[in-house]
Simulated assay, not measured.
Amino acid sequence: MEVMEIIKDAFVFPSKDMKTLLIYVLLSLVAAGFSFFGTVVYVLGFVNPECFMWGGMAVIISLLIGWVMYGYLISVIKSGIEQSDEVPGFEWWENFITGFNNFIVTIVYFVIPAFITVIVGYMTNVYGNAMIVAQEIYLQATYSYMGSSSAIAFDAIYQALVNLLFSLTITITVAVVVFVIFSFLQTMAEARLANTGSLSEALNVFEAAKDIRRIGIGKVIILVLLVIIIVAVIEMIFSALFSIIPILSILSIIIAPYLAFFAQRAVGLLYSDIA
């Protein structure tokens, strides 16, 4: 399918079954409620230790509901891969298992770039340079207190800051690049999970990279950027509307899931080229 055909289909798709969308909305509200309640109660545990248990249980329930939602979004991707016009219904246990697998996929595709960033930070001595800056500032503050500050000390601080800025620039640049690359790879991994139902296939980073090449790097980038732009523009428009008419902000509980369905459907249709 062409990119614009994918966008048109994906944007209309969530409206084909508002009942399923509303179930997803309800789940998101319940999950958010348990998460908020659990966090508040857990904090109260510092006053009453028993609250730690209840707060933790509420957060766990929120996480379990979240896995069902995660799994359902994978089924939306699958509907796109199969180019089915029907919005998939909830298969609670299957959605839960798939959601758990997707949770693992998300962690793995986050840990790898995070690990690379840490390695680069170590190689560029970010931590060491930060400690030198802190030490030089401490020494300069001590000298100033004793009335013996000098231009040499300020030069030392300046040089330390230059070194820190250099190492931070390299590390942040590498971090942005690898996190962007792995966000695209994670998108393919979720499509692979939807297509095969296999966690091992989803975690195959090299095959996910090959999938991007099979579809076309340009097509993948264009579609993902278009989806991001459309979602951002819609959210900006509604945010402006909500600021003018605050009571309409209740619509946000439907808008966010609708856009999530739209994005996942687009991914599925994109992957259907090679499925």
Score class of each variant (00 low, 15 high):
1 M>L: 03
11 F>Q: 00
23 I>P: 01
23 I>V: 12
23 I>M: 06
25 V>F: 03
30 V>F: 06
39 T>P: 04
41 V>A: 03
42 Y>R: 07
42 Y>H: 04
43 V>A: 09
46 F>A: 12
55 G>L: 05
62 S>I: 11
63 L>P: 04
67 W>L: 13
67 W>G: 06
72 Y>L: 02
76 V>P: 05
78 K>Q: 12
83 Q>F: 00
85 D>R: 11
89 G>K: 13
90 F>K: 01
100 F>W: 11
100 F>Q: 02
105 V>N: 06
107 I>W: 10
114 A>E: 05
115 F>N: 11
119 I>F: 15
124 T>G: 06
128 G>R: 13
128 G>Q: 12
131 M>Y: 12
139 L>D: 13
140 Q>C: 09
140 Q>A: 15
141 A>S: 15
143 Y>S: 13
151 A>F: 14
156 A>W: 13
160 A>Y: 11
164 L>E: 01
167 S>G: 11
167 S>H: 08
173 T>E: 08
175 A>Y: 09
180 V>P: 04
181 I>M: 10
184 F>M: 03
185 L>Q: 07
188 M>T: 02
195 N>D: 08
199 L>R: 09
206 F>T: 10
213 R>W: 12
213 R>D: 10
214 R>N: 06
214 R>S: 04
215 I>V: 02
215 I>P: 00
239 S>F: 12
239 S>P: 00
241 L>V: 11
243 S>I: 13
247 I>Q: 03
251 L>T: 08
252 S>F: 12
258 Y>L: 09
258 Y>W: 07
264 Q>F: 07
268 G>I: 03
270 L>V: 00
272 S>L: 01
275 A>D: 12
